[in-house]
Write a protein that binds this DNA or RNA. Structure first.
Lengths: 110, 110
DNA sequence: GAGGTTGTTCGACGCATGTCGAACAAGGGT
DNA sequence: ACCCTTGTTCGACATGCGTCGAACAACCTC
């Protein structure tokens, strides 16, 4: 929040799901771009950040991935210059059974 | 939207759930006050708008009830000077099975 | 190490949203 | 008729959020 001038170590902080208010999880899902990302991630496996080309700049994409990560929805692994993202499906399903399925099976309404 | 000066007939428009984007439903649920209202409504039955005293003014309460209604989450019936609100649970459960349960059974984290 | 690739951060911009008080509308009581 | 209650709308304000380009960092390759 108050990091002026880049501290340099890139914390990558992924909260415990229990510590994230439900409203934050819902808010994270309540955006078209992020929902597309989640749908893509739901296919399973890891994806490099660059994979997600949804008509936004890489700055915006980075922002959305941060929101998802800090809402406890994704985990990120750094490898070389890339970063691999995956859905925290098991934890999500355990804490909010049915939520993800409901959202993912919802009509795609492009 | 462009109603200047009060038109007077109070449309009360409740959309078909299919016509509401998922993100709008999620956004409607992604607010503390509205979530409290939904939790209260989930007890079943109808509630007058004034029932919901969650530390906000009646203007704000009215706003939140409008958001919920226009996201297809509630139905409103006018009777006298009061207005009775209820959850559209059946429709919700049919279109987004598991969503409401997941949100309602989530830890209350006051 | 110079240059390319990948992703994050900053600063700025506009738009949406939560909040309130005040004014208004519609009904119900007495 | 008058007033009170209930709820909506308006206008204003502050804050939050999505978006971008530009600058930066870390890494890899040659």
């Amino acid at each position: 929040m108050s990091n002026k001038g880049y501290t340099g170590h890139m914390e990558l902080h992924e909260p415990e799901l229990r510590d994230v208010p439900v409203t934050a999880v819902l808010a994270a899902l309540a955006d078209d771009v992020r929902l597309q990302i989640v749908r893509a991630l739901a296919e399973g496996g890891e994806y490099a950040c660059g994979t997600f080309e949804f008509g936004v700049s890489k700055a915006t994409r980075s922002h959305h991935l941060k929101v998802l990560r800090e809402a406890g929805l994704t985990r990120t692994r750094a490898a070389g210059t890339s970063r691999y993202v995956r859905l925290r499906r098991d934890e999500l399903d355990r804490l909010y059974p049915g939520l993800l399925d409901a959202v993912l099976t919802a009509p795609t309404r492009s």
